[in-house]
């Protein structure tokens, strides 16, 4: 899975929990929850969707490691090998 493919899944899932926002405008260093005003309930729905679509497991203690778009993409990549 390429970085762009991961991003496109992330953007699509963010759009479902925050339909009034444009996640594609996120910069790599932006805090996702703060930038899109996503509350803890919606963020959990987002993680559930991510785990389901990408077949990964995100333990709760890792939530702190995926605050920004850059961190999230790196986190997902480390659990799913990037396509060459």
């Amino acid at each position: 899975m390429t970085e762009d493919q991961i991003k496109s899944v992330v953007f699509r899932l963010l759009k479902t929990v925050a339909p009034d926002t444009d996640p594609t405008q996120l910069k790599p260093g932006d805090n996702i929850r703060q930038s899109l005003s996503i509350d803890s309930f919606d963020y959990l729905q987002f993680i559930v969707g991510l785990d389901k679509e990408l077949g990964i497991q995100t333990p709760e203690e890792d939530y702190g490691k995926i605050g920004t778009l850059k961190e999230l993409v790196e986190y997902v990549s480390s659990r799913r090998p990037l396509a060459k």
């Binding site: 803890s40 309930f41 959990l44 993680i47 559930v48 785990d51 497991q57 995100t58 709760e60």
Partner: peptide, 8 residues
């Protein structure tokens, strides 16, 4: 994951 608790 689906059943995880939130502080709320």
């Amino acid at each position: 994951l689906q059943e995880r608790l939130l502080p709320v």
